[in-house]
Deep mutational scan, measured.
Amino acid sequence: KELVLALYDYQEKSPREVTMKKGDILTLLNSTNKDWWKVEVNGRQGFVPAAYVKKL
């Protein structure tokens, strides 16, 4: 599985998104969309802005 690092805090704005804190390590589930990547964090799956994370 591929991991990404949260570069910034992000507060979810819809049920399809997830909240993350700067420094969190997230599991990358899908990065086919250039703007929104699907990740898993704390057992929850959802989208975060691709610009807010970096592949490890």
Score class of each variant (00 low, 15 high):
Lys22Gly: 05
Lys34Arg: 11
Trp37Tyr: 09
Glu2Lys: 09
Asp35Arg: 12
Gln45Ala: 12
Val41Met: 10
Thr27Asn: 11
Gly46Glu: 02
Gln45Phe: 10
Asn33Ile: 06
Lys34Gln: 10
Pro49Asp: 01
Tyr52Gly: 07
Lys21Asn: 10
Ala6Phe: 01
Gly43Pro: 04
Ser14Glu: 10
Trp37Phe: 08
Ala51Asn: 13
Val48Pro: 00
Leu29Val: 13
Gln11Thr: 15
Ala50Gln: 06
Pro49Leu: 03
Ser14Phe: 07
Leu28Gly: 01
Gly23Tyr: 04
Lys38Cys: 10
Glu2Pro: 14
Val39Asp: 00
Arg16Ser: 14
Asn42His: 11
Thr27Met: 15
Leu29Ala: 02
Lys13Asn: 11
Tyr52His: 08
Val41Asp: 08
Gly43Glu: 09
Leu7Asp: 02
Asp24Ser: 08
Leu5Val: 14
Lys22Asn: 04
Leu28Arg: 01
Pro49Tyr: 03
Tyr10Glu: 00
Leu56Tyr: 10
Leu26Gly: 11
Asn30Gln: 11
Phe47Ser: 03
Gly46Trp: 03
Val53Arg: 00
Asp9Lys: 03
Leu3Val: 09
Ala50Gly: 04
Asp9Gly: 06
Phe47Trp: 14
Arg44Pro: 01
Trp36Asp: 02
Lys1Ile: 14
Lys1Phe: 15
Val53Pro: 00
Val18Asp: 00
Glu12Asp: 05
Met20His: 01
Tyr52Arg: 06
Leu3Glu: 08
Gln45Tyr: 12
Lys34Thr: 12
Val53Phe: 05
Leu56Asn: 04
Trp37Gly: 00
Lys22Trp: 03
Asn33His: 14
Lys21Ile: 10
Lys38Ser: 09
Arg44Glu: 06
Val53Gln: 00
Lys54Ser: 13
Asn30Asp: 15
Phe47Arg: 04
Asp24Val: 05
Lys1His: 15
Leu7Val: 09
Ser31Tyr: 08
Leu26Asn: 01
Lys22Ser: 08
Lys55Tyr: 12
Asn30Val: 10
Asn33Arg: 10
Thr32Glu: 15
Thr32His: 13
Gly23Ala: 03
Glu17Gly: 14
Val41Ser: 13
Val4Gln: 01
Tyr8Ala: 14
Lys1Asp: 11
Ser14Arg: 11
Ser31Asp: 14
Trp37Ser: 03
Leu7Pro: 00
Gly23Gln: 03
Asp9Pro: 06
Ala6Cys: 09
Lys1Asn: 13
Lys55Asp: 05
Glu40Cys: 08
Ser14Thr: 11
Val39Ile: 08
Met20Trp: 02
Gln45Val: 13
Leu56Lys: 04
Glu2His: 09
Trp36Asn: 02
Lys1Arg: 15
Asp9Ser: 09
Glu12Gly: 14
Val18Trp: 06
Arg44Gln: 08
Lys38Glu: 14
Lys22Glu: 08
Glu2Gly: 10
Leu29Pro: 00
Ile25Gln: 05
Glu2Asp: 11
Trp36Ser: 03
Leu7Phe: 04
Ile25Arg: 06
Gln45Trp: 08
Tyr8Gln: 13
Leu28Met: 04
Gln11Val: 12
Leu56Met: 12
Arg44Ala: 07
Lys1Ser: 12
Ala51Gly: 11
Asn30Trp: 09
Asp9Phe: 05
Thr32Asp: 15
Pro15Thr: 11
Asn42Gln: 11
Ser31Thr: 11
Gly23Arg: 02
Leu29His: 07
Lys38Gly: 06
Thr32Leu: 10
Asp9Ala: 07
Asn33Met: 10
Leu3Lys: 12
Lys55Phe: 09
Thr19Arg: 05
Leu29Phe: 04
Ile25Glu: 04
Pro49Ile: 02
Tyr52Asn: 06
Gly43Arg: 05
Gly43Thr: 06
Asn42Ala: 13
Leu26Phe: 07
Asn42Val: 07
Ser14Asn: 14
Gln11Pro: 07
Glu2Met: 13
Arg16Ile: 14
Val18Gly: 02
Tyr10Phe: 08
Leu56Arg: 03
Leu28Ser: 02
Tyr52Trp: 07
Arg16Pro: 06
Ser14Gly: 13
Lys22Cys: 06
Leu5Lys: 08
Val41His: 15
Ser31Trp: 10
Lys13His: 09
Val4Trp: 10
Thr19Ala: 08
Lys55Leu: 15
Trp36Thr: 02
Ala50Asn: 03
Asp24Ile: 04
Leu5Glu: 15
Val48Met: 01
Phe47Asn: 04
Leu29Met: 08
Leu3Met: 15
Ser31Asn: 09
Glu17Arg: 04
Met20Thr: 04
Glu17Leu: 05
Val41Cys: 08
Glu17Met: 05
Arg16Ala: 13
Val4Phe: 08
Leu26Tyr: 12
Leu3Trp: 12
Ala6Leu: 02
Glu40Arg: 07
Val4Met: 06
Arg44Met: 07
Lys13Ala: 12
Val18Thr: 06
Glu2Gln: 13
Asn42Leu: 11
Leu5Ile: 13
Leu56His: 07
Val39Lys: 00
Leu28Glu: 00
Asp35Cys: 09
Gln45Thr: 14
Gly46Arg: 02
Lys1Glu: 11
Tyr8Asp: 09
Arg44Asn: 07
Val4Cys: 09
Trp36Met: 06
Asn42Lys: 11
Trp36Pro: 00
Leu29Asp: 02
Lys21Glu: 07
Gly23Asn: 07
Trp36Gly: 01
Thr32Ile: 12
Leu7Asn: 03
Gln11Phe: 14
Asp9Val: 03
Asn33Phe: 09
Tyr10Pro: 01
Val18Arg: 02
Ala50Leu: 02
Ala6Tyr: 02
Arg16His: 15
Trp36His: 03
Val4Gly: 12
Asn30Lys: 07
Lys34Val: 12
Phe47Tyr: 12
Thr19Ser: 13
Lys38Trp: 15
Asp35Ala: 15
Met20Asn: 00
Glu40Ala: 09
Glu17Thr: 09
Val48Leu: 02
Lys13Phe: 06
Gln11Cys: 09
Leu26Asp: 00
Lys54Phe: 13
Tyr52Pro: 00
Leu28Trp: 01
Ala50Met: 06
Trp37Lys: 02
Val18Ala: 06
Thr27Gln: 14
Gln45Arg: 12
Glu17Gln: 14
Thr19Trp: 04
Val39Ser: 00
Gly23Ser: 04
Ala50Ser: 12
Lys13Gln: 14
Val39Ala: 02
Pro15Ile: 12
Trp37Ile: 05
Gly43Trp: 04
Glu2Ile: 14
Ala51Met: 12
Pro15Arg: 06
Leu56Cys: 08
Asn30Tyr: 08
Lys54Thr: 13
Val4Ser: 04
Lys55His: 11
Leu28Lys: 01
Val18Phe: 15
Lys55Gln: 10
Val39Thr: 01
Asn42Tyr: 11
Trp36Lys: 02
Val41Glu: 04
Glu17His: 07
Val4Arg: 02
Ser14His: 15
Gly46Leu: 05
Val48Tyr: 00
Asn33Trp: 08
Lys38His: 15
Glu40Met: 08
Phe47Ile: 08
Lys13Asp: 07
Val39Cys: 04
Ser14Leu: 09
Tyr8Glu: 11
Ser14Asp: 13
Trp37Ala: 04
Glu12Trp: 06
Tyr52Thr: 08
Met20Arg: 00
Arg16Asp: 14
Val18Met: 10
Ala51Lys: 12
Lys34Ser: 13
Gly23Lys: 02
Lys55Arg: 12
Asp35Glu: 14
Pro15Val: 11
Trp36Ile: 03
Ile25Pro: 02
Thr19Gly: 10
Val4Asn: 01
Glu40Asp: 10
Lys22Phe: 05
Pro49Gln: 03
Pro49Gly: 01
Tyr10Trp: 11
Leu5Ala: 06
Ser14Gln: 09
Ile25Lys: 05
Lys55Ser: 10
Glu2Val: 14
Asn42Cys: 10
Lys21Tyr: 12
Ala51Thr: 11
Arg16Trp: 15
Lys22Ile: 07
Arg16Asn: 15
Leu26Cys: 08
Val4Lys: 01
Ile25Asn: 03
Gln45Lys: 13
Arg44Phe: 07
Lys21Thr: 11
Thr32Arg: 12
Asp24Arg: 03
Lys54Met: 15
Val41Thr: 13
Lys38Ile: 15
Val39Tyr: 00
Asp24Met: 13
Val41Leu: 14
Arg16Gly: 13
Lys1Pro: 14
Val48Asn: 00
Lys13Gly: 08
Tyr10Cys: 01
Glu2Trp: 15
Glu17Lys: 04
Leu7Tyr: 04
Lys38Val: 14
Glu2Asn: 12
Gln45Ser: 13
Leu56Val: 13
